[in-house]
Computed example of a mutant assay.
Amino acid sequence: MGEQTAIEWTDATWNPVTGCTKVSAGCDNCYAAAFARRRLRHTYLPRRPAVETEENAEDPFAVRLWPERLGQPERWSQPRMIFVNSMSDLFHKDIPQQFVRRIFEVMLTCDRHIYQVLTKRPARAAAFWASNAEELGYAEIPAHIWLGTSIEDQRVAYRRSHLIRVPAAVRFLSCEPLLGPLDLDLDGIHWVIVGGESGPNHRSMESSWACTIREQCRRDSVPFFFKQWGGNTAKAGGRLLDGREWSEFPDVVASAASIAAVT
């Protein structure tokens, strides 16, 4: 899994871990959980969960480790943006810290790619880096590894305060699925993604919610990416906001593309 993806803000996905558990309203209609249980159960079920219990042994979306996938980024010769663990959360409590460290070692060593790590557990991300930075050999996370957190409504806006404790050159917010109006503090944030929910049980997003975030980004000179309106399918509502697509990225993308062009 991983070579291709329809996610607009990345080029590929890489899943050395699969599976997760719900932590907030944004998880209610999780696409990854539905995909795992409907289409990938026969692939996932033979692999034992990282922490096996009677309850999760037959759950395709229990957390599972796939060490054989660790070498995948090295096999991709052309630089690309890689969404790390699109089918999981790298900082889930069931993932052994040693395995998270191995994933970081791959990202740090194979640095021709940009890695996009998105978590709903930014406090655990900050704690991981604080306890492992010295062993990994970096005081700060380099610019080719982006750390982001999901903020779907104001109730979880506190995640931003945990995220900025991570000494990353690029930190981002994913406001998807956007479930209500947000008043964001963008200090220390370098990119914002906004998107509506998709799927048969999708909850609608109001245009004013997306436009308000876009204006906050403009005010604070933060790149803004509008992913989708959502609907019964991910592409149903399209990507136009006020008559145009918004596909801004942090400056490091342009820098990486320039380097790739001359190497």
Rank of each mutant, 00 (worst) to 15 (best):
M81T: 14
F83R: 07
V84M: 03
V84Q: 00
N85K: 03
S86W: 14
S86L: 14
M87A: 07
M87E: 06
S88R: 08
S88K: 11
S88Q: 07
L90V: 12
H92I: 04
H92R: 00
K93E: 15
I95M: 10
P96C: 05
P96H: 12
Q98P: 05
V100L: 13
V100Q: 14
R101D: 04
R102W: 08
R102T: 06
F104Q: 01
F104I: 08
F104R: 05
V106H: 02
M107G: 06
L108E: 09
L108A: 09
L108Y: 12
T109D: 13
T109V: 07
D111T: 12
R112S: 04
H113E: 10
H113S: 08
I114A: 14
Q116R: 03
Q116H: 05
V117Y: 02
L118P: 00
T119V: 02
T119A: 00
T119Y: 01
K120P: 01
K120L: 01
K120H: 00
R121L: 02
P122W: 03
A123K: 14
R124Y: 15
A125V: 11
A126P: 04
A126F: 09
A126V: 08
A127P: 00
A127N: 03
F128P: 00
W129D: 00
S131C: 07
S131P: 02
N132C: 15
N132R: 13
N132T: 10
A133S: 15
A133G: 12
E134S: 14
E135H: 07
A139H: 10
E140V: 13
I141G: 07
I141T: 12
I141A: 12
I141R: 09
A143W: 08
A143I: 05
A143N: 08
A143D: 15
H144Y: 10
I145Q: 02
I145G: 08
W146N: 11
W146S: 05
T149R: 00
E152K: 06
D153Q: 12
D153T: 13
Q154P: 01
Q154K: 06
Q154G: 08
Q154Y: 01
Q154A: 12
R155H: 11
V156M: 07
V156A: 09
Y158M: 08
Y158W: 14
Y158L: 07
R160D: 06
S161M: 04
L163K: 05
R165D: 11
R165N: 13
P167L: 13
A168D: 01
A169E: 10
V170S: 02
F172H: 09
S174M: 09
C175E: 09
E176L: 09
E176S: 09
L178F: 10
L179H: 09
L179K: 06
P181R: 10
L182E: 04
D183Q: 13
D183V: 13
L184Q: 04
L184M: 08
L184D: 07
L184A: 08
D185P: 01
D185R: 10
D187E: 15
D187P: 02
D187Y: 03
G188W: 05
H190T: 11
H190R: 12
V192P: 12
I193V: 14
I193Y: 07
V194Y: 06
V194L: 15
